[in-house]
Design a protein around this nucleic acid. Structure first.
Lengths: 276, 276
DNA sequence: CCGAACCGAGAGCACCGCTCTCGGTTTGCC
DNA sequence: GGCAAACCGAGAGCGGTGCTCTCGGTTCGG
């Protein structure tokens, strides 16, 4: 079944090689990918690259799509690393996985969530993979709601104009969330990327927050509280979110070096039992 | 008093003119400011611009600093527009002012909160003006705490490593906030810029959320709940943020259409840094 | 087997940030 | 008032960029 001719094979390999070198350049240099430099690294002349990608933006686009996929994979792996009924552990697993991937790939993260690149607008093939992270968060809440383990939202109710927008979203996907719960899910989602953007783009670590991983962990726990996720696995929802957490372990994290500063206890920063 | 010679005067005017044209280019074209194009618009040759700015990055830096000032001015004006004891109104005023300025100046916002530009690292003169927004939020909470009008935080307590970081921050500035409250303030801060980044960079309005201003308003109200801000002016804090008034629609509460896009009150973006 | 498709190299275009040199003007000091 | 020094704009030029086009050589498929 090797219908693909030799030429087609080397073409596919060449495309992969160009993407690999481009990704490497993106990692070492900044976000301004130079097509000529990539060609130079490959021992080609710049015009030869145009046999494989019609423009530099096209190259960037496929890198963006693949970066979305990698980020989505990491997020789902972070979810899968926790026990199914440990809703809060899964939530934090997704969040920490997103953060770890982003810190390990800052230039690609900037392509996804930084300023849009000058000319081009994110093409349509990016919208689906871009939704995987928020869907991962929503899935956890949906499961919790189905199991009756989500604390009922209190506080400001959703006003009508927002309610219709959210209801339209909810109608698209199966799952039983109220508009209040979906709004909280999206709050956690934007909070997650706000935090990661601050950290990746260096607008946080001006010596202000020393232990940025523990800070991030706490912030995402606040969002878990907001979402109504139970603090412990297997328990039904409690109206007042308590907090002494069960297993200390949990994240796993699959790939990505995680570079968490200090190893040994990669996640779950020291949360002392009651107080200090 | 005109000690500045004629030459110095025209030099200062020239600098202002260059900045103005650069800002215009930034608004019309994308974020990749072309120094040659700016020079062309001024009827100069590119090398002449180097008499006034040592490099393109230096030009960008002063634009960044002034953009921080303009954003800070807008945020503080948004705070000042509400009655002093209407803590929630001030909170929402700051948030909506930040959003309005950012939507009105997307390219400058991208300089401040998007991907860092390739080569240069934000110089030190940007850190102080960059803190004005979060300080505005913190000031509201501090006043609320001093008046005993902040609902006590519930949910996950701050773990010790984060506590020491936050305690160091609290020691720098006067004001009586607990670490829990400061953590919530910073949550609202990152949430605010996460939301604005999503909207300015177009990662939200894929037809998903129709009424993005109402959505933003509700999200920031959720953060106000999280911060413990009282729902109505002049009332003391309520322990449990209740909200019975079960009408499906908003309570009286002056629905807060805020500067809803409608002109006539073009907000205060633009506000060119009230001079020094 | 041979035309067609594909491929890499090279030259070239317009643009970029930036440097340097060269005359002309303004300034400030003696 | 004169004059050196500082300042200024124009121009040429360097190395870099994305991209186009042409030209030979290779491979594919009918």
């Amino acid at each position: 079944m090797s219908a693909p001719s030799i030429r087609a094979r080397v073409r596919a390999e060449m495309i992969e090689e160009i993407k690999a070198v481009a990704r490497r350049h993106l990692a070492t240099e900044g976000g301004n990918l130079s097509l000529r430099a990539v060609a130079r690294d490959l021992g080609m002349v710049s015009s030869a690259v145009y046999r494989y990608f019609p423009s530099r933006d096209a190259l960037l686009t496929v890198l963006i799509v693949e970066a979305y996929q990698a980020l989505g994979d990491a997020a789902e792996a972070g979810d899968a690393a926790a026990a199914r009924d440990d809703l809060r552990g899964r939530w934090l697993g997704v969040a920490h996985a997103v953060r770890a991937w982003s810190l390990a790939h800052p230039a690609e993260y900037a392509l996804l969530y930084g300023s849009p690149v000058p000319g081009y607008a994110a093409p349509s093939e990016t919208v689906v993979p871009a939704q995987r992270v928020v869907f991962a968060l929503a899935a956890i809440m949906i499961e919790g709601a189905a199991a009756g383990r989500l604390a009922p939202p209190d506080g400001t109710p959703v006003p009508s104009p927002v309610r219709v927008d959210l209801a339209r979203l909810l109608a698209q996907r199966p799952g039983a969330l109220t508009e209040e719960q979906l709004a909280r899910c999206m709050a956690a989602w934007s909070q997650l990327f706000g935090l990661v953007s601050f950290e990746v783009f260096g607008r946080l670590a001006q010596g202000v927050v020393e232990d940025s991983e523990a800070y991030f962990d706490h912030q995402m726990r606040l969002m878990a509280d907001l979402a109504g996720l139970p603090a412990e696995p297997g328990r039904p929802a409690e109206p007042g979110p308590r907090h002494d957490r069960g297993q200390s372990d949990e994240p796993g994290q699959s790939d990505e070096p995680r570079q968490s500063g200090r190893p040994g206890q990669p996640d779950e920063p020291g949360q002392p039992a009651s107080e200090e």
